[in-house]
Design a protein around this nucleic acid. Structure first.
Length: 578
RNA sequence: UACCCCGUGGUGUAAUUGGCAACACAUCUGGUUUUGGUCCAGACAUUUCAGGUUCAAGUCCUGGCGGGGUAACCA
């Protein structure tokens, strides 16, 4: 038998230790909960999951994994007015896609309504809860403020019998919505507002997506969460910072109720990213305002949006592990997310050639009606990916910005009289530029090729530094490609400090007008015509592109740019401009 | 305003619990390369400030400054 406890950190745990791991390790070593670790992710089914939720979910999931423990998915469905079945399904799909496994432990707080009701009765019998007839407005008034102590409700001293009776009649539907509440009797002078006789139950006639019309009273978040944790045997309940102030109440209920276990709540800072917003309320505004095509718009940082954009679960895991967990309210640079995707896709995406802004090139000394099959490597990072052939013909397309009438310093691409190599093919030299007589725009190039330069060779040993991608003009597939950029034009779209220029501006004023560019007539390597939805490729020298799962049709794939490649030349040009 | 929490490079996190500030990303320099990709090498910090304890402080104590959260019959 090993001397190592079965729940010590596993070998696979990749992320470095954070303050939560440290705290849990201490609990485990102290023998708390018999050394068990059991976590949960508790979304409210009132919206779609986004990258911020992914942080919370992944943190809870990997924490359990790390200690050989269990992880639950629990829907915190105590407010039927806002919740819906649609989200229950979508959240499960997203959580599964991310790779969090709750095994058979799909839980609902609504499954505990009867138990919770019993707990409430216990509290009444202990003289620690009472039915209060104060209106919502009066309740607020009686509670006082941060600097002003609250005062006791006139209903605070009702007898246990009367409270029991009234509470039963609340459940029976004898009273109007909002006319009464059940409150915990704690301390109206407490510095922590949540301890000033918090509401445990409210009367609310709304159809619940699971319990239907069985209940007309519903427990509040505070009266539900900790007890649900305890019922499920959750040992560590990790949530975001705004619940920190709730912790004394969370613990108060657990101490005063006959719950089966004593979970521990630990709070961490939620995720913030530059060039985006991550609050449910604001994301809804983007969708409802028509600023995006929906929750799964590839520019959205919802999990379904990221998935459609071409993000892999692995890239998100890497990102989340790199970002870490702390209590400091920070903002992560968006490039961190993009880079995690690049790294993942660099290893797994097959390379293809695609020309987004086509410029026709005629290779004047290449035989007409002739096709030469060239061999191309599918993925230089993966020897098992093999090779493919691509057709070279007399007429081809190259990228419009791979040609300049005048080549600036350090520009290795095509210009009049200059030579470049066609990737996997021959070197060509630009001999003639054809311009449109009306617009003056370059409409076609005429080049000659050097038949001695196949296979990367130059017979005379001359250096040809520039290598450009290309696609046969006659053997190619035309498709729509969508280029995405940040949804917002500035790193902090919510910033609006009074007294500055940005005072009064909202995130909607900072939308990036160029966040989506649709290119209808891109020229692709023929093999791409049969690409399947969800498939992802690197278009050489451009970026990673995946087949859109919504707008593609058989034989007519639409491509989304997931992320561009790093572009050293673009950086040089940008520097020169400054 | 009251109460609670938090301050480590440009950014996000580490630091064996008091012992040479580490890792990733970004940026800048070079090198390799049939992708200006990848990869490789190098550069980049008086740990918010001021005191104090100590042989020794990012870490402990006191005060200041700065940031965030809460004040729903939402979660």
């Amino acid at each position: 038998m090993s001397t190592k406890p079965h729940n010590s950190p596993t070998e696979e745990s990749v992320a470095s230790a954070n303050f939560i791991v440290t705290a849990v390790t201490e609990d485990v070593e102290a023998g708390q909960n018999g050394g068990a670790v059991h976590t949960r992710f508790p979304p409210e089914p009132n919206g779609y999951l986004h990258i911020g939720h992914a942080k919370a979910m992944w943190l809870n999931y990997t924490l359990a994994q790390r200690f050989g423990g269990k992880f639950n998915l629990r829907f915190d469905d105590t407010n039927p007015a806002k919740e819906d079945e649609e989200f229950v399904d979508a959240i499960q799909a997203d959580a599964q896609w991310l790779g969090c496994d709750w095994e058979e432990r799909l839980c609902f707080a609504s499954d505990y309504f009867e138990t919770l009701y019993g707990y409430a009765q216990e509290l009444i019998r202990a003289g620690l809860a009472y039915v209060c007839d104060l209106s919502p407005e009066d309740t607020q008034e009686y509670r006082g403020t941060g600097s002003k102590s609250g005062r006791n409700s006139p209903f605070r001293e009702r007898s246990i019998e009367e409270n029991l009776d009234l509470f039963a009649r609340m459940r029976a539907g004898e009273f109007a919505d909002g006319s009464r509440t059940l409150k915990a009797k704690i301390d109206m002078a407490a510095a922590n507002m949540y301890l000033r006789d918090p509401v445990m139950y409210r009367i609310l006639r709304a159809h619940h997506h699971r319990t239907g019309d069985e209940w007309c009273i519903y427990p509040t978040y505070d009266f539900t969460h900790g007890q649900s944790d305890a019922i499920e045997g959750i040992t560590h309940s990790c949530c975001s910072l705004e619940f920190e102030i709730h912790r004394p109440l969370y613990e108060w209920y657990l101490q005063h109720l006959p719950v089966p276990s004593q979970p521990r709540q630990i709070e961490f800072a939620r995720l913030n990213l530059t060039y985006t917003v991550l609050s449910k309320r604001k994301l809804i505004k983007l969708v409802e305002g028509g600023h995006v095509s929906g929750w799964d718009d590839p520019r959205m940082l919802s999990l379904c949006g990221l998935r459609r954009r071409g993000y892999t679960p692995e890239a998100i895991h890497t990102f989340l592990d790199q970002v870490g967990v702390a209590k400091f309210n920070s903002t992560v640079d968006m490039v961190q997310l993009e880079n995690a995707l690049r790294n993942d896709l660099n290893q797994r995406a097959e390379r293809r050639m695609a020309v987004l802004h086509p410029l026709k090139v005629v290779i004047t000394n290449f035989p007409e009606n002739h096709t030469e099959e060239l061999t191309a490597i599918n993925n230089p990072e993966d020897a098992n990916a093999g090779t493919r052939t691509i057709p070279l013909t007399r007429e081809i397309y190259i990228e419009r910005n791979d040609f300049r009438m005048e080549a600036p310093r350090k520009y290795f691409r095509l210009a009049p009289g200059r030579e470049v190599r066609l990737r996997y093919g021959y070197c060509i030299t630009c001999t003639e530029v054809v311009t449109d007589p009306e617009s003056g725009e370059v409409s076609e190039l005429r080049c000659t090729y050097d038949p001695q330069t196949g296979g990367g060779q130059t017979p005379d040993g001359r250096k040809v530094k520039g290598i450009i991608h290309w696609v046969s003009a006659t053997a190619s597939h035309t498709a729509e490609v969508r280029l995405y950029d940040h949804l917002f034009a500035v790193p902090f779209p919510e910033k609006n400090e009074p007294g500055t220029e940005e005072a009064g501006l909202t995130f909607l004023d900072r939308l990036n007008p160029n966040s989506l560019e649709v290119l209808a007539t891109c020229k692709l390597e023929p093999s791409l015509a049969t690409a399947q939805p969800g498939e992802c490729f690197q278009f050489e020298r451009l970026g990673y592109f995946c087949v859109d799962s919504v707008d593609s049709s058989p034989g007519q794939p639409v491509f989304n740019r997931s992320v561009s490649l790093r572009d050293a030349w673009a950086r040089i040009e940008k520097q020169r401009k400054q």
